[in-house]
């Protein structure tokens, strides 16, 4: 039975639950907008990184470089798209 629950993955799961709990603080306590957003950004991105490395085995073959480049590239363009859109349509309109 034990071999079915590798420590790394169990720890990963526990950690993701903790991160969720921390994110929930935003709801249950009184935070300013900027503190709240910081907490959310941190927990969400750490959580995403966790899934990528622990569960998705992104780095286990020699395609590692392609895979990470692809994901980081996508992330960069995603952020540019989101913030560029907000800049154009909301913040600077």
């Amino acid at each position: 039975m034990k071999e079915l629950f590798p420590l790394k993955q169990v720890m990963g799961f526990v950690f993701s639950l903790i991160l969720t709990a921390v994110a929930l603080l935003v709801y249950f306590t009184d935070m300013s907008f900027s503190v709240g957003m910081t907490v959310l950004l941190l927990t969400a991105f750490i959580q995403a990184g966790l899934q990528l490395v622990v569960f998705m085995h992104a780095g286990e073959t020699n395609d590692k470089k392609s895979i990470y480049t692809n994901i980081y590239y996508g992330l960069l363009i995603a952020l540019i798209t989101i913030f560029g859109t907000l800049l154009t349509l909301i913040w600077d309109m």
Partner: peptide, 13 residues
């Protein structure tokens, strides 16, 4: 996770 954080939690903050 992103939906949870940036749609729900941010919306209820």
């Amino acid at each position: 996770i992103f939906i949870f954080s940036f749609i729900y939690l941010k919306g209820m903050m």
